[in-house]
Amino acid sequence: MLNEIRARIKQGYRTAPFPSKEMKLPERYLGVPIIEKKKCGESDCRNCVKSCPLSCISKTDKGITIDLGICIFCGDCARACPSGGITFSRHYAMSVNNRADLKLSGKTLKLAKALEDKSKAIFGHSLKLREVSAGGCNACEADTNVLNTLAWDLGRFGIQFVASPRHADGLFITGAVPQNMLLALKKTYDAIPEPKLVIVAGACAISGGIFKDHPEVNNGADNILPVDLYIPGCPPHPATILDGLLRLLGRIEL
């Protein structure tokens, strides 16, 4: 017992003051991209479009659009752009309510809004989620799991990942949803009592990501279930995930 107490004193208090203090992510972290129309030079330059391994950038007369629902934040486009038209910020807040809001063509995203009053009254102070990994590579899973550690201490927000779908208020999905997981995912969704939320985390769960259009997968969960929150990234940083969850509950605004 004394050993444990000594260790506890040595290890100290390590919970991050989230969200009260802005998190400082590493300098090389790639957050929300910034598209600057003025800097995007010649109209026939398509370097960014060509550089994207997932073809998630398009360019029209109106400018460049990046689909953050597919983007894996590899940074190839920013490196390919000769005039600094695309750069990556260190902003980790990027969760949205609608799939269309992930199509970024300017400097800012339309971030997720809180649930309407009735849902917020039900879920606002206690949100139990059932996680289903359906084709996730264990990166999204690991950085979701990390929210349960004392570094993030998810429980203090009243959010908890639970074992049984019957005890859950919503489904938290990672992965591109392989054909082999489709039935299990649907059954888990059906087992959650109404009213229920669906949250998709990571490029795979939103659109299939890297695995988009493989015959073995369903291009994520968006076509299968009604989604309330989209958390982009590959994988999303834990701060991105937690920020998204808290926005949905109205605990972070702006």
Binding site: C74, A134, G135, E216
Partner: peptide, 20 residues
């Protein structure tokens, strides 16, 4: 359950997606 068909997509590679 996690079969995403990676190896089949590697035939004809390397291309931009291979490293991912």
């Amino acid at each position: 359950y996690q079969h995403r068909g990676i190896e089949r997509k590697l035939v004809g590679a390397p291309d931009g997606k291979t490293i991912h």
